[in-house]
């Protein structure tokens, strides 16, 4: 009964469907709005930004004291909390630890609940395939990581530059900007892939959080213990946290070239971790669930 349908307000679709790649943006938007609707996200973000506020205030204080009392400013320089590549690297590394906590929450909300409560099938029943779903979710997690690591670091970098007497700081320290973005990319890529892989296999919140934190804390301890046992520094590659930090040093240009594990070895390990994570994700993300 076409006339009845038309009376009811139904019209045939006359528009042009866009590429399914646009759905990636929709997934990111939905994921971020889902997570930002929770008060807990803002509590964790607030905790995560305490360190940022501390650095922000310190830079402001230092800039003020430089004008009023140069001797005291030189004393503050000894703390190496601001301005240098190492300072930003340390700041981002500490922030990444807090991001790991935020990601345990994000993982259970954005991926774990999709696996448990049929959200995945909701997405995959649309005109998109799992590539779009996976990339959308990965970008969502990467956005959360960047929100707490890269973005605050860039703000501190800009703050330090604009509070100095000229814009020379940016010209002389362009490598710091590159380093922040580079290290941020490493953190976002590795953490999002790894979290997705863990959450899609261990979707419930408690085991997910345990596994996620266990990977970072215990692998670091195991790497150190094995290095001491075997006297071989390459065992340190087991510590993914340290691997990412090493990549950070590489991005900031401060990685020693004569020390094992080398940058190349670290890159290979992290690429391996990303590849295994991706394989685990692809294997698990399916529109059809096989019930025995």
């Amino acid at each position: 009964m076409p006339s009845t349908l038309e009376h009811a307000g139904y019209r045939p679709w006359t528009g042009q469907l866009r590429s399914p790649w646009w759905s990636v943006l929709a997934i990111v938007r939905v994921a971020l709005s889902l997570i930002m609707r929770r008060w807990l996200f803002w509590v964790l973000l607030g905790l995560g930004l305490l360190n940022f506020l501390y650095h922000f205030s310190f830079i402001y204080l230092k800039a003020t004291l430089v004008v009023q009392n140069r001797e005291f400013a030189r004393f503050l320089d000894g703390f190496k909390l601001t301005g240098t590549g190492d300072a930003y690297l340390t700041f981002m590394h500490v922030q990444a630890g807090i991001a790991a906590l935020l990601l345990a929450f994000a993982g259970s909300m954005l991926i774990g609940s999709d696996s448990q409560h049929g959200g995945m099938i909701f997405y995959l029943s649309r005109s998109m395939d799992r590539r779009h779903y996976i990339i959308g979710k990965l970008l969502s997690i990467a956005a959360v990581v960047s929100l707490i690591t890269t973005v605050p670091a860039l703000i501190l970098y800009i703050e330090y530059g604009v509070l100095s007497s000229s814009f020379d700081y940016f010209l002389q320290n362009w490598r710091i900007g590159v380093g922040i973005v580079g290290f941020g990319l490493v953190l976002a890529t590795v953490q999002s892939l790894l979290l997705f892989a863990v959450a899609v296999w261990v979707p419930r919140t408690v085991p997910l959080a345990m596994t996620w934190l266990g990977i970072f804390v215990l692998l670091t301890a195991l790497g150190r213990a094995l290095r001491e046992m075997a006297g071989e520094r390459r065992w340190l590659l087991l510590a993914l946290w340290e691997d990412m930090l090493r990549m950070g040093h590489w991005a900031f240009g401060s990685l020693p070239t004569d020390r094992t594990p080398t940058g190349t070895e670290t890159v290979l390990v992290l690429l391996g971790v990303c590849a295994v994570s991706l394989a685990l994700i692809v294997y698990r993300v399916r529109a059809v669930e096989v019930v025995r």
């Binding site: 345990m210 596994t211 266990g214």
Partner: peptide, 22 residues
């Protein structure tokens, strides 16, 4: 009988490996 027990086993084994190495 929950997954937590499995994860606890995994983490304890990892710790045991660390101590064995030490």
């Amino acid at each position: 009988a929950s997954r937590q027990t499995l994860v606890n086993f995994g983490l304890t084994t990892l710790c045991a490996l660390i101590v064995a190495a030490w």
